[in-house]
Design a protein around this nucleic acid. Structure first.
Length: 800
RNA sequence: GGGCGGGUGGUGAAAUGGCAAACACGCAAGGUUUAGGACCUUGUGCCGCAAGGCUUGAGGGUUCAAGUCCCUCCCCGCCCACCA
C-alpha cells in the first residue's frame, strides 16, 4: 500500500491553487465542452453510479487537456425536487437549508475523487439568480404561445399530491413513490413540445448519439402517418372522426369504438337506448386503475351503443358503435374504425362480441385465392372486397381510399404536450399573475425572479392546490397592467425545468443581465460530449433539446442542437446484481472506499469493472486488484526506474499501449484501456530496470484514470510542472511493427504448429517453413494438398 | 404485445471472420510474513496417464477457417406498453 490519503489531499489542494482545471473563456486553444448530468443532491450522498459517469468524462476531459484543448468540464446541482421537500415536511427544516447541507456533502465527496471540474462555474437550480432565468425562459414560451393553460384530466398521484407528466407514470404508478395514479381534472400549464416533434425527430440525423438513444427518442416521439376519416351517424348531424394508419382497410371496418371519455358518448345520451348500461360501463372504467386494466391483460371489454349506427363512408353500410376502454381518449381522435380482419385488438374484441370480420387485404396477388383467416392479418397485400379498389396494392390504396371518402392525411405523435404544473413548494414559481380585469398577465421581466416565499408548512393540500396558495401576502399582488387586485399562480415548475438549460448557464454562470453572454455561448456551445444515464433519454434529454431549439428560434442560443455527442453508462448494481437501494442495504458509500483504498483505486476500478455501457454488479474484491496494480506502480517507480538506459522491447510495448489506451478511451472501452495499462506494467515488472523516458510516458497515459498517484510519481521523478500540463504521447506507427511473428500452421483448419517467422514472409516462404515442421509432416502424411490459404503475417492453412 | 440490450470458465470479462478465455478476481500449492482485505512464485475451461480430443444458450447453414456472418428456436435483463 502506498500513502494514498496524503498524496490525494496534497494534489487536490495543489490543483486548486494552480487553477489547472479552470476553463478559459475565449482562449485561442480549441475548446472542448465535456458534460455530465449534474446530480440531484439527495441526503444519501454520492452514489457509485455518479462516480462511474463522472470518472469516464473526467478521463476524457483530462486527455483532451493533454491534447491541447481548452476544456470546460463543469458541475452543479439540480436541487429542486420532492425528496428534499418531503424531508422538510418531516423535519420542518427549510428545503434551502437541507439543500445547502446536501450540496456541501456532494461537493466534498466529488472533490475527494479528484474530478477535474471547474468549481468556479458551479450552478444551482434553486438559486434565485439561476431560476430567474428559468422563469424568464418560461415567459418567452408564454409570449410565443407555447406555454398555455388547459383544463384537462391529468395523472394525479394521491400520495405525493402532485400532477405527473405521462413520462413520470410507470405502468400506471407514480415514478417516485409507486402509488397507483388516478385521473383528475385540473387546470394545468402545458408546454407545446408537440410543435417541435418533427424537428426533434429529424435533427437526430445531425447529431452523434448512440443508436439506442436515438431509437428510444424516435419511438418516444412516435410519429405515425395516417388519415383522419369521418363516419356519419344515422339520423344525426354529428360525425365520428377517426384516425387510422390503415385507410386501405376501410372497406373492412365492421364496427366503431369510442373511448369511454369521448364527448360524443354523453352528447348522444338521448339516442342511446341502453344508456344505463353504457353509463355504468363508463363509471366502472374510470374507477378502474391503470393497474387493473393491465392486469386484465388482453381481455377486451365494451358495450354497444344501442340505437346508434354509423355509416361506413366507403361502402355506405351501417355499422354498430361501441364504447370500450381499449380505445384511449388521449390518442388520435379518441375513436377508431374497427377492422377485425386486419387489426389484432379489433379481432379479439370482435371475436368476443361476435362481430363479423371481413377480409379486405389479401396477401397474395389478385389472381390467387385468399387464405382463410385464423387471426388478424396485419401485413400488406392487395385490396379485395373493396369495390373499385380491388387489386390495388395496400400501400398505394391508402391515399386513394382516403381521397375517395373525403378524408385527409394526418400525422399523429405519441408525444404529448408537456404538463408543466406541479402543486408543490420546492420548485420555481410560475411567473404568471391572474387579474380579474386583465386575465392572465405574465410577470414583467424586470420583476424576476419571483422568489419563493418563506412558509411554515410545506405540506401539499389534498385539494390539489399548491402549498403556496396559503401564503396570502405572497399570493395577493397588484396587477402589473391595471394595478388592480390580482393573484399569483401558485403552481411551481416540474423538476425538469432547471435541468433543461443548465448546460447554457455553465458558459457564463454569474451573468446578471442575460441567461448567458451570447459571445460565450458562441465560444463554448454546443456541448461536445454529454454522458449520462439511459433513464434520462426520453425525459431530460428530449426536454433540454426542446428548450434549446426554442431558445435558438428566439435568437438566444447559437446552435439548434445542444449536444454533439451523447453516450450512456450502465448502472452500477449491488452485489447480487440487484439495484442498489437503501431498503436492500446494498448501497456502497464512495467515502468508505476512498478511505480504505483511495480515490485513484475507486476511479480505476469503476473503469475496469466491465464494459462501460453495461450494468455491472459491484464487487469489492475487484477493488483489491486495482489497488494491487497501483501499489506495484508505486513500488516500481520508487525502486526500478533509471535514467540513461534503453530497452527496445519495452519501448515497443509502450507504443502499443499508448495506441490502445488512446483508442479505447475514445470508444469508451475503459475496461480494456485499464487492462492494457496493467499488461504494460506487468511487462515492466519483468525487467530489472525501466528506462525513465518510457516510465514517464506510462505515467502520462495512466494519469487520466489515476491522477493523484501519477502526479506524485511525476514530481518524484524530478519534474517541476504538473503532469496535467504534459502532452498526450503520440505513438510511433513504425515502432509498432515487429520483425517476427508467430506463423500459425493449420491442416484443414486445425492448428498443428506455431512457427516463429519473419514479418513479411511470402506464401512460398511460409509453405517451406511449414512443410519442414515434423508435426505438420505427420499430419499431412501422404495426402494430397488441394488448396493452400495464406494470410500474410498470420497463418497458412493446408486443405487436403 | 413492441423496442433495445444480452447469453463465453467458479466470478467480472477479452477476442479487425484467423491460436477462445487477454486483463483482473477467486481458488490451490509453495515461499515470506505472522496485527493484516499485506507481499512474492507457480498453477488454474472440461475429459484423458499420455498422444490427443472436446468447449462460446440449442439446432441448422455459409466459409479453407465462425463466439463473430445467415436462418430457425430457447432463455435472461432493461425500457415502453390496448398509440388505432
Amino acid at each position: 500500500m502506498y500513502p494514498f490519503s496524503k498524496i490525494e489531499k496534497k494534489w487536490q489542494k495543489r490543483w486548486d491553487q494552480l487553477g489547472s482545471n479552470k476553463a478559459q473563456n475565449f482562449s485561442k486553444k480549441p475548446k472542448y465542452y465535456a458534460l455530465v448530468e449534474f446530480p440531484y443532491p439527495s441526503g444519501d450522498g454520492l452514489h457509485t453510479g455518479h462516480v462511474r459517469s463522472y470518472t469516464a468524462m473526467d478521463v476524457i476531459a483530462r486527455k483532451r487537456r493533454m491534447e491541447g484543448y481548452n476544456v470546460l468540464y463543469p458541475i452543479g446541482w439540480d436541487a429542486f425536487g420532492l425528496p428534499t421537500e418531503n424531508y422538510a415536511i418531516k423535519t420542518g427544516i427549510h428545503p434551502k437549508i437541507v439543500t445547502r447541507k446536501n450540496t456541501d456533502t456532494f461537493r466534498r465527496q466529488l472533490r475527494a475523487l479528484g474530478f477535474s471540474f471547474d468549481w468556479d462555474r458551479e450552478v444551482n437550480t434553486t438559486d434565485p439568480d439561476y431560476y430567474k432565468w428559468t422563469q424568464w425562459i418560461f415567459l418567452q414560451f408564454y409570449k410565443k404561445g407555447l406555454a398555455y393553460k388547459a383544463r384537462m384530466p391529468i395523472n394525479w398521484c394521491p400520495s405525493c399530491k402532485i400532477g405527473l407528466a405521462n413520462e413520470e407514470v410507470i405502468a400506471g404508478r407514480c415514478e417516485r413513490c409507486g402509488t397507483v395514479v388516478e385521473q383528475k381534472e385540473k387546470e394545468q400549464w402545458l408546454l407545446r413540445i408537440t410543435k417541435y416533434a418533427d424537428r426533434l425527430l429529424d435533427d437526430l440525423n445531425t447529431v452523434d448519439y448512440l443508436d439506442k438513444i436515438k431509437t428510444q427518442q424516435v419511438n418516444w416521439i412516435g410519429r405515425s402517418e395516417g388519415a383522419e376519416i369521418e363516419f356519419s351517424i344515422k339520423g344525426c348531424k354529428d360525425k365520428i372522426s377517426v384516425f387510422t394508419t390503415r385507410p386501405d382497410t376501410l372497406f373492412g371496418a365492421t364496427y366503431m369504438v369510442l373511448a369511454p371519455e369521448h364527448k360524443l358518448v354523453a352528447a348522444m345520451k338521448n339516442e342511446i337506448s341502453n344508456w344505463r348500461e353504457v353509463k355504468s360501463y363508463i363509471t366502472k372504467t374510470s374507477d378502474k386503475s391503470e393497474e387493473e386494466r393491465i392486469a386484465e391483460g388482453k381481455e377486451k371489454t365494451g358495450v354497444e351503443l344501442k340505437g346508434i349506427k354509423a355509416i361506413n363512408p366507403a361502402n355506405k353500410k351501417e355499422v354498430p358503435v361501441f364504447v370500450a376502454d381499449y380505445v384511449l381518449v388521449s390518442y388520435g381522435t379518441g375513436a377508431i374504425m374497427a377492422v377485425p380482419a386486419h387489426d389484432r385488438r379489433d379481432w379479439e374484441f370482435a371475436k368476443k362480441h361476435k362481430l363479423p370480420a371481413v377480409m379486405v387485404i389479401c396477401p397474395n396477388y389478385p389472381d390467387k385465392t385468399c387464405p382463410v383467416l385464423r387471426e388478424a392479418y396485419v401485413g400488406d397485400g392487395f385490396l379485395v372486397g373493396s369495390g373499385k379498389f380491388d387489386g390495388t396494392p395496400s400501400e398505394k390504396a391508402k391515399w386513394e381510399v382516403t381521397k375517395f371518402v373525403g378524408g385527409r392525411k394526418r400525422v399523429q405523435y405519441h408525444l404529448r404536450d408537456w404538463i408543466f404544473s406541479r402543486q408543490h413548494y420546492w420548485g420555481e414559481p410560475i411567473p404568471i399573475i391572474f387579474c380579474a380585469k386583465c386575465g392572465e398577465v405574465p410577470v414583467p421581466e424586470k420583476d424576476l425572479p419571483v422568489k419563493l416565499p418563506e412558509v411554515k408548512k410545506y405540506q401539499p393540500t389534498s385539494t390539489g392546490e399548491s402549498p403556496l396558495s396559503s401564503v396570502k401576502n405572497w399570493v395577493n399582488v397588484k396587477c402589473p397592467v391595471c394595478g388592480g387586485p390580482a393573484k399569483r399562480e401558485t403552481d411551481t415548475m416540474p423538476n425538469w425545468a432547471g435541468s433543461s438549460w443548465y448546460f447554457l448557464r455553465y458558459t457564463d454562470p454569474d451573468n446578471k443581465k442575460v441567461l448567458a453572454d451570447p459571445k460565450k455561448l458562441k465560444y463554448w456551445m454546443p456541448v461536445d460530449w454529454y454522458n449520462g444515464g439511459m433513464e434520462h433519454t426520453t425525459l431530460h434529454l428530449l426536454y433540454s433539446r426542446f428548450w434549446n431549439k426554442f431558445l435558438y428560434d428566439i435568437g438566444v442560443v447559437p446552435f439548434s442542437e445542444p449536444y454533439k455527442k451523447r453516450t450512456s453508462q450502465g448502472m452500477v448494481l449491488g452485489r447480487g446484481g440487484e439495484k442498489m437501494s437503501k431498503s436492500k442495504g446494498n448501497v456502497v458509500n464512495p467515502d468508505s472506499v476512498v478511505k480504505t483504498f483511495g480515490a485513484d483505486t475507486l476511479r480505476l476500478y469503476e473503469m475496469f469493472m466491465g464494459p462501460f455501457d453495461q450494468a455491472i454488479p459491484w464487487d469489492e474484491k475487484g477493488l483489491n486488484g486495482c489497488s494491487r496494480f497501483l501499489g506495484r506502480v508505486w513500488e516500481m517507480a520508487q525502486k526500478r526506474v533509471a535514467k540513461k538506459i534503453t530497452n527496445p522491447d519495452l519501448e515497443r510495448a509502450l507504443n502499443k499501449t499508448v495506441k490502445k489506451v488512446g483508442n479505447d478511451i475514445e470508444s469508451m472501452s475503459f475496461n480494456t484501456a485499464v487492462s492494457a495499462l496493467m499488461i504494460f506494467s506487468n511487462d515492466c515488472y519483468r525487467v530489472e530496470t525501466i528506462p525513465l523516458e518510457v516510465w514517464k510516458k506510462f505515467l502520462i497515459i495512466l494519469a487520466p484514470f489515476a491522477p493523484h498517484i501519477t502526479e506524485e510519481l511525476w514530481e518524484r521523478a524530478g519534474n517541476k510542472k504538473s503532469i496535467n500540463l504534459e502532452k498526450w504521447p503520440v505513438y510511433n506507427e513504425k515502432l509498432l511493427k515487429e520483425d517476427k511473428f508467430e506463423l500459425l500452421v493449420q491442416v484443414n483448419g486445425r492448428l498443428r504448429a506455431v512457427i516463429l517467422a519473419k514479418t513479411g514472409i511470402n506464401e512460398d516462404g511460409a509453405k517451406d517453413l511449414a512443410l519442414r515442421n515434423e508435426n505438420v509432416k505427420t499430419q499431412l502424411g501422404t495426402r494430397r494438398v488441394k488448396k493452400v490459404v495464406f494470410v500474410p503475417n498470420r497463418l497458412i492453412n493446408f486443405v487436403v
